Simulated scan of single mutants.
Amino acid sequence: MKRLKSPGGGLITINAHEIEKSMKARPHVVVVGAGATIAAIPHGDKNGKKASVMQGFIDSLGLRHLLNGISLRTTSDNIEDIYSELAASGEHDAVVQELENAIREYFSELEIPVELTVYDFLVLGLTKKDLIASFNWDPLLYQAWSRSHRITSNLPQIVFLHGCVALGICKKDKRVGPICHRCEVCGEPFEQSKLLFPIREKNYQDDMYIQNAWKRLDSKLRRAYMFTIFGYSAPKTDQAALDLLKNSWGPNTDRKLEEIEIIDIKPEEELENTWSDFVFSHHFKTTDNLFDSSIGRYPQRSCEATFERLMNAEFLDAEKGFNIGMSIEEVKAKLSPLIEDEERNEGDVLHNPYI
């Protein structure tokens, strides 16, 4: 038992078990960027189509001819910089529209491979208390989340902060679903959801779905025990997004117990500089792949395992997690006892097989 001061100045008694239960039950929030999609299909999608990074995107889509005769101030080859300048000028609306159509068509054609991908392991490594927020337009995360229901319904929430080609909306009834489906209320086909394209001055309030996605992220991130950034480079065209993330996470001095993980191939020093405003002291870890992260090593118990390691000084067995190339049958066998434990648990601390 511990005695702490209450907001009113009096002493209150807190049970150590209740503290542990509360901390372990907090969300794990994951933000994913283009690097996560590239990691999910390193050899191409189901049909061999590669994910494209923003750098060189114009040329990879064969759209360089659209820029003929246009004098750009930017020397960047990044479509975010090029698009942002074109859109801001107000003089090249036809080119901007062609770029938007090409982007939507390109990403709409991506299909997740038959074998399990990094996105499958990411989704299955978390639970319903957690949330994945994607900055990507492609449908791969949504496809992985959809087929993961074959294993369990105890899956994280997913939201798309810049929209997603896989999702449609009904503005009338405020419903969201797969673009190929109909609204469950009025029965009308869903409209294609909006994609938020890369301009410097983004407005996250204009679109119903995107506004709600940011609200859900804000709610989860404020309460999160763990925050993972996977393949998101925090580009300069996303300053508004970074400001919102900072506001939700709060000052790093208020996050003395929380943990941040970065999954990225960039050097650790560069990543630490990028995310320094979020990190308190040494509560920071980088890895270049999902399988060496807390989600990969301790699937469905990332917060529980991290609390055991840092607060209870327990040694953990990192060999019991996910491995590259695991089949769906192997994943089912690994997760079944964890899923069963959570289904019969009545809100107490969950079983942790990683100690």
Rank of each mutant, 00 (worst) to 15 (best):
V165M: 08
K236I: 04
D317G: 04
V32W: 04
E314T: 11
L271W: 04
C186I: 06
T306C: 06
H181Q: 14
H17T: 10
N212I: 08
A16E: 15
H28R: 06
V349S: 09
S89Y: 01
E308W: 15
S276L: 04
D254T: 13
G187D: 09
L131S: 03
N352G: 09
R147L: 10
W214Y: 10
G296N: 02
N78H: 04
G48D: 13
S336I: 12
G347N: 08
K256G: 08
E109K: 15
R223C: 02
K5Y: 12
L257Q: 11
L310M: 12
D59L: 02
P189T: 08
Y209E: 10
G62S: 01
L155R: 10
P267H: 01
K46L: 15
Y204T: 12
W275H: 08
E100F: 05
N15R: 12
D120M: 13
F315A: 09
Y298H: 08
M311H: 15
S276T: 05
V31E: 04
D292S: 11
M311G: 09
E346M: 12
D77Y: 01
L110P: 08
L271E: 13
D138I: 00
A144E: 05
V123E: 12
L350E: 14
I41S: 09
L221N: 05
L11Q: 14
D120G: 13
T253Y: 12
L63R: 00
V53G: 14
E270L: 11
I58R: 01
V53Q: 08
D341F: 02
S293N: 07
A36K: 09
E340Y: 02
N78S: 01
Y106K: 09
M326K: 08
E314V: 12
E188A: 13
K320A: 06
Q55A: 06
I12R: 13
E184D: 12
G250N: 05
N101D: 06
E261T: 05
S219Y: 12
Y298R: 05
A87G: 07
N136E: 00
K172G: 03
I260S: 02
G325R: 12
F227N: 09
F57D: 01
A87S: 15
L116I: 11
I199A: 02
R222P: 00
M311C: 09
A88I: 02
E258H: 07
I14R: 11
C183Y: 14
N252I: 00
K5L: 14
E191I: 06
G62Q: 03
L67Q: 00
E191P: 06
P337D: 02
R200H: 14
E268V: 05
G48K: 14
P235A: 02
E308V: 04
A51Q: 12
N78K: 00
Y298V: 03
P251A: 03
K171D: 11
F121G: 02
S219C: 04
G125R: 11
V185S: 11
W137A: 02
E201S: 10
T75A: 11
D120V: 11
S89E: 07
I151S: 08
S248C: 07
N15K: 11
W249V: 05
W137N: 05
E329H: 14
S84L: 01
I324R: 15
G35I: 01
Q239R: 11
C164V: 04
A102D: 04
E105K: 15
F160I: 10
A224L: 06
I328W: 06
I210W: 13
S134T: 13
K194V: 08
